[in-house]
Every structure is written in C-alpha cells, then in structure tokens.
Design a binder for these strands. Structure first.
Length: 259
DNA sequence: ATGGTGGGCTTCCCA
C-alpha cells in the first residue's frame, strides 16, 4: 500500500497536476492540504473518474484538507474534540485497515506573532487528540504539512535559518511531544542524510538551487514500523509548469494480502 | 535589513 501527502496550494489550480500524479504514482491513500475549497466545490466527480473516493473538510480562500482513497474512508473526524476552530486543518478517517490523520499544521508567521501562539497551542491539542487516536487505533498514520523542520538536516541552510519560524525550539518540542507518543518519522527510517526537502519557496529560484525544507511528514505508529518498506519524496511535480510550492511525499507499507 | 513569488470572492492577507 502506498500512502502519500501533498500540500497542493489550491486544488482548483492544481487539479490537473493531482490527476496526472495519481495516474503516475498510483497511491492508495492521499492526504491533501491547502485545498482552499468549500466542500460544495470539491471536485468529487473528477476524482471518482480517476478511481478515488474523497472525504474533505474545506473552507473558502484558506486551509482545507482532504483524504483520497481507493476504498471509502470511514469514521470521519473533522475537528479536535473540545477545540472550536473555524480553520479547516484536520481530517481523520479509517481506510484500508489503517487509521489516517491528515494535518495542515498552522504556519505561525513568525516567532512571537499571535499566529505563533496559536500554532503552539494547536500542536498541544493535536498531541492530546493523537494520544487518544493511537490508543484506539495502533495502526495509526499521521501525515501532512507539519510546517516544522524536525532537525537541522531538514533545512538547506540551518545556520542562516537559525531558530526562526519552522525551526524554533518550541515548535520542535511540539513535534517531539507528538513523536514521543510512539510515532516515527517514516522518512528517517530509510534516510539519514540531509538535503532532502518537500517544500521550496517560489522566490529566488529556490527549487533550482535546492534551497528547501522538509516539512511534509508521514509519521507511523510502532505497530506499523516493521512493515514500512520505503519512504520517498517525489520531486517531479515540482518541476511541472505552475507547480505547488510543495511536492508529494510517500510511504510504502507491506500490509500483506489479508484485510 | 529587505524583498523576492504565488493563490485568493485581491488593492491586502496568507504562505
């Protein structure tokens, strides 16, 4: 089974890229972020024609998350219990014998900004939600745009970036509180070197110069660690005309033949 | 220190 995450930065603009990539990569489950679409405008029919069921939690202009799958996703959750948040950033579903939680983590703008405080609080609440999810569903996958570089290997120039937004110690502590639940950064099960990124700024020819960050992650519960086969970043869609600033990340799990 | 680019119910906000 192939499970993927992609921040598409407007599904309206990127739908042709998405359908092309689905045909090329043949993923079984895909988590999308920044769809920027109201639910009524989600391209259900186009994705069904591509062979995927879809569930989604969107809003106009900003945010928006979706899960695509070959099989119908079930037991949908669109909100963190107890958190009244109009921003559509989380979507959980059961699919293909897995529990999948798709996150579009708050960017935070800058250390000290009000959005940064919202980010740290949101992360703490997600951590508590994930603790409950993991207790109920050992076969848990938590993936999405985390808007946090796990460590300096995930930053093109860690010295210059320093402790700015996406790399500040409190953000990294917020991520560590999540991985400390027993969720592994699947990419690091296969690759120890730096220089592998999932996002490149649109400015300054950042992609051509590989000035990127690895902020799109697929975390897996301990129960899935032994069946992880490969974790990859597909840079190809970032080369296409009018790309998203993020590129898809993918994990292959060996779930065997029994359901 | 600044600003560069891109998406969006656009002349600013968000990333």
């Amino acid at each position: 089974m192939k499970i993927a995450s992609w921040n598409v930065n407007s599904l309206k603009v990127r739908l042709p890229h998405l359908t092309q990539w689905l045909a090329d990569a043949q993923p079984d489950v895909v988590a999308l972020q920044e769809t920027k679409l109201e639910d009524a405008k989600f391209p259900v029919d186009e994705l069904a024609a591509a062979g995927y069921r879809a569930v989604f939690s969107g809003q106009k202009t900003y945010n928006g998350v979706a899960i695509l799958a070959r099989d119908e996703p079930r037991d949908i959750v669109t909100d963190i219990p107890g958190l009244d948040d109009p921003q559509r950033r989380i979507l959980a579903a059961s699919v293909g014998g897995l529990r999948v939680v798709n996150l579009y983590v708050v960017n935070g703008k800058a250390v000290g900004d009000p959005k940064y405080a919202y980010k740290l609080d949101w992360l703490a609440r997600v951590r508590d939600f994930l603790a409950d999810e993991l207790a109920r569903h050992p076969r848990l996958v938590v993936l999405g745009d985390f808007n946090i570089c796990p460590d300096d290997r995930d930053v093109y120039d860690a010295t210059a970036w320093g402790e700015d937004i996406l790399c500040s110690p409190p953000e990294r502590a917020g991520l560590k509180a999540i991985t400390d639940l027993g969720l592994h950064d699947s990419f690091r099960l296969f690759e120890a070197e730096g220089g592998h990124y999932s996002w490149w700024d649109y400015r300054q020819a950042a992609f051509r110069r590989n000035m990127g960050l690895r902020i799109d992650l697929i975390l897996i519960g301990e129960a899935l660690k032994s069946i992880a086969r490969a974790a990859t970043i597909d840079r190809e869609p970032r080369r296409w005309e009018r790309p998203s600033d993020h590129t898809p990340v993918m994990l292959e799990l060996d779930l065997g033949t029994s359901p």
